[in-house]
Write a protein that binds this DNA or RNA. Structure first.
Lengths: 399, 399
DNA sequence: TGACTTTGTGCCGACGCTAAACAAAATACG
DNA sequence: CGTATTTTGTTTAGCGTCGGCACAAAGTCA
């Protein structure tokens, strides 16, 4: 009797990613009849997830009956999202559409015991939930480490002094259970964890510079080492055991620094913030993160020839690495984060030229390379991962 | 009224890949009721695609009513499949299940004009169709070159003296139209084309050593250069414009040969048959293909220290390249073809050790590495690509 | 104002499935 | 040897979901 049950998930995803501003567009995107699309929208509205404007939108020049606007319900449910990085952590509540409802930046030095910071993260998130009174449907956590699946353990928490193999997902879920963050069914919400660059790619694909891309490659460097991520046909590719896109060991400088992997001149050691500071002849200081120091240097002293030369050097190395990845993966867009984003901003033409020169065919070389466009992108990515079960089956997760 | 229309495609694919030997298994694999599975099987049988044994299969020790065996209809429709390689071409008729019905090996030196060999290929296939009287539902062609999508042009027909950008798919379809190979609707069958390594990966995933793998990486070298292919979640990943998995320019020997790509020590020039012959101190002869010469050398003179040393050298380089790919893609199985397959057979432990050592985590390093198991695998892959529309919607393509 | 265009909704029927009962064909066991 | 059990296959009834269609609503265009 009820229409549009099968299309409920796809429809919510369309509204969530801003690709269905009206029911008319929703009808076309879903490939169903107007009757079905209308029923789907009504169902999602009844679930409290979306909103159908009472008054039709201002007629945009086109004739015909104007459409009512669809949007994410402003007081709908949220997920708890958090990111952990070299300088501390940040917790937030994120609604559908990638909207950050409330944030609690928690700058603390990251302790060697991962359970302590994860507890603090969840406590901050639980505090936000108490303050706002929002209903919580899930939780996501981004960590600067590869996360093995299906165990949910952090395999290389490099610049956190965490033990290798820390069971971050289990710790996250234990903290959630302890803090009393309950879902609509009265049980603790389930938490998902993932690598920060992977989740950044997911966020950029859904809401940022990667929107509309079919195959999106994301490369970023935050503190030490280089991370990569890949979204294929709208879905994050994290490999058969979560370990895909460990791109840091592509050779970009055959005569370069030795790397712990046994080779030399790897992207990991040749194109991260430390490599940039070293190339510019600066001594890294202990006060702020290496990314922050690099960014400041690049932005304020780009006129200095040594800084400019270091930037050019790193752009050339990054271009080599990107060309290698583009040859292998043939994405239709590339998004850069962290210091790589700054390097792209500093001299976009140089980077694009290197990639084009080293790509095997002109078509691959002309792939668009864009900077990340979202603030807190790994946090929003964590939220995306947490929302995924709701997007897959809204009825089961909300009703 | 008719039951099991939506499940028709998935059901045919299960029988096609041998994963549904009986209706009972089909029921479980499809996740439907026995009634639906029975109706689906009846429908596929009515279409002439599969066969339900009249007599139940020999009871295999288990109690309960024995199941009737499902199999591909022996006299069902076929597709025309062909591969073009350095030594000539081969055309065949291939049924569902990857069964080669009839082949016409056509060894001719490959002319500079691609349309001539493609005409010859199609003519050979059309001859087989006339001889056997089989109904033809599609056609597929594997070429040793990257094929750009959506144009269907051969971008690097390296060891064929074809022009770059030869419109192979158009030529293939024109030849099919000219030869009068008609589908059941009376119009010429549509031909699809693809890179031979990509199609090999598809074939191995469906019927060979890659069966059951979720993410399959395939690497092979036939004559000159190295090709790669990737099957993700059962679907070939050929990138946004068909150019993915150009893996030949991973650096595996920083002090090695210069490569036309501008770098040096690329997999392409360090790990193909020519590199092997050179490393073994042999002069390549003009009579047979480089692959054939390498294979003969490896099989008959492996005891010779110089041959053994060359094999070890190439295994080490191949291992480096595979480790890089495994780090990036995290497949759960790797299949090797051409000379790489021979190298694996020569010393499996050495190759696995190199990959394990250079992989970032033990889990990635222990990925199974297997030899290709199918004869004519790119030909069967071409058939798979040709069958795909039928697998997607049997009713539309056969009825 | 009337024609036209586009959007939204109610009703009905068709399609494709599940559920449940029944039938069939083997093994297990007293 | 006969009955119970297990597993497979088929029949029938019913129901949920969606498309098709008619109609209503709300704007623009002339």
């Amino acid at each position: 009797m009820e229409r549009g049950r099968g299309a409920l998930g796809p429809a919510l995803e369309l509204v969530h990613t801003g690709r269905a501003p009206t029911r008319a567009v929703l009808t076309a995107e879903l490939g169903v009849t107007r009757a079905t699309a209308g029923a789907v929208a009504a169902e999602l509205e009844a679930l409290g997830l979306i909103q159908v404007d009472a008054r039709p939108a201002a007629s945009a020049g086109s004739q015909g009956r104007p459409s009512h606007r669809l949007s994410i319900a402003p007081n709908g449910p949220v997920v708890l999202a958090a990111q952990i990085h070299a300088d501390g952590f940040r917790a937030a509540l994120v609604g559908l559409g990638g909207r950050v409802i409330a944030t609690a930046p928690g700058c603390m030095t990251v302790p060697a015991d991962p359970s302590r910071i994860i507890d603090a993260v969840v406590e901050a998130g639980a505090g936000l939930l108490r303050e706002t009174g929002r209903r919580c449907l899930g939780a996501g956590l981004a960590v600067p480490s590869a996360v093995a699946e299906p165990e949910g353990t952090a395999l290389n928490p490099l610049h956190l002094s965490w033990p290798v193999g820390a069971p971050v997902r289990t710790l996250f879920n234990e903290a959630l259970a302890k803090s009393g963050v309950l879902g609509p069914d009265g049980t603790p919400v389930t938490g998902v964890t993932g690598n920060d660059v992977n989740l950044t790619a997911l966020a950029e694909h859904r809401h940022g510079a990667g929107r509309g891309a079919r195959h999106l490659l994301c490369v970023a460097t935050g503190h030490r080492g280089v991370g990569g991520a890949l979204v294929l046909d709208g879905r994050l590719h994290s490999g058969s055991s979560g370990l895909a896109m460990e791109v840091g060991h592509l050779t970009v400088n055959p005569t370069g620094q030795p790397c712990h992997c046994g080779s030399r001149g790897c992207l990991d050691v040749e194109c991260d913030p430390l490599a940039f500071l070293t190339a510019a002849g600066r001594e890294p200081g202990p006060a702020v993160s290496l990314l922050q120091q690099s960014r400041d240097l690049l932005r304020t002293e780009y006129a200095d020839p040594s800084v400019r030369a270091a930037a050019d050097l790193l752009i050339d190395r990054l271009g080599l690495g990107l060309a290698g990845l583009v040859n292998i993966l043939n994405p239709d867009r590339v998004v850069l984060g962290g210091l790589h984003r700054e390097l792209l901003d500093a001299d976009p033409e140089r980077l694009r030229a290197v990639v084009a020169e080293r790509s095997l065919w002109g078509r691959s070389g002309s792939v668009p390379i864009l900077p990340c466009s979202l603030e807190f992108n790994s946090l929003i990515g964590a939220a995306e991962a947490a929302w995924q079960p709701v997007l897959d089956d809204p009825l089961a997760m909300v009703g």
